[in-house]
Amino acid sequence: MNILIFTTAFAGFGALCLSMERHAKQVFGVVPGALPRLGAAIAGWALLAGALAPALQRYGVSVGITAWLGFLSLAAVAIGLLLSYAPRQIRYLAPAALFLGVNLAWLF
């Protein structure tokens, strides 16, 4: 369940970074159009919010919120480090995390 929270948050921040001009350029080399970026922003925020669900299910309301915030920090730092040192990898890692998350979600 922890992995599910993390992968969802990671994919969320991944999408969110693609919605920002500077970061999208770091990842793709070119800045995507406004519409895809808007889509990425919506998907990103939705995923971040979505990561709360498994946290609540696993830990109950209040510890769940703490755990969610903790995983958000961890995922954000992971994306931040990737953007600094291996930005292009996000193209693969974020969808992979999403894929893993979706598959894990079926398990629970």
Partner: peptide, 17 residues
């Protein structure tokens, strides 16, 4: 309090950050 080891580690790491 009441935090499982995983959550405790997350809190610890956030403190380090």
């Amino acid at each position: 309090r009441f935090a499982t080891p995983a959550v405790r580690w997350l809190l610890f790491l956030s403190g380090v950050i």
